[in-house]
Amino acid sequence: MKRFLPALILGLIGLALVAVFAFQRLRPPVFHGQIMQAGDPVADFTLTAHTGERVRLSDWRGRWVALYFGYTFCPDVCPTTLAQLAQARRQLGAEAEKVQVIMVTVDPERDTPERLAAYVRAFDPTFVGLTGTPAEIAAVASPLGVYFARQEVGGASGYLVDHTASVLLLDPQGRLRLIWPFNTSPEFMAEDLAYFLRRG
């Protein structure tokens, strides 16, 4: 029996290592946002990019899209989220080119393409800003679960816009896969993105 003891211990250690490896590879992933089963692609839409061109959401098929609704006069939530997205992208290194961040304005009256361009590029030169008529924005936002409403506050800024602050992650086929709540850390976003980029 003593002869086999070292082999038995080694075997058990090996088995434990295999079990840990198998668990890591096979377990369902635990994300830092709310995962969605991949269903149909979200409805395509056409808006005006910060470059002035009319673009469609489907133009980014083939890339992961982090879709965010915000506005350039936004005092806190939007700059925080865009900075976190920029940091998450940087953490992905070369893989970051497979991820496109898009901010759709919820304040189309004030957010001209020029203003949007200066704003989104300040966070990351690859970010895209989209605007349109108020009706176009409303038609895009609501079916994606995004609410926005103008709040008169007086003073220099005139008004603020209350809005949903989640980030929607669409896969390369345009399907909604994950929803990050406001203030998800860049590390968590990068972790989730890295998983998706690895697994597809």
């Binding site: 709310q34 995962i35 969605m36 089963q37 269903g39 936002a141 609501s142 079916p143 994606l144 679960g145 995004v146 609410y147 926005f148 409403a149 949903t164 929607l168 909604l176 929803i179």
Partner: peptide, 11 residues
């Protein structure tokens, strides 16, 4: 229960 799709945003 399945996660069917996002419910619409509204005010």
């Amino acid at each position: 229960l399945p996660r069917i799709r996002l419910a619409p945003g509204f005010a």
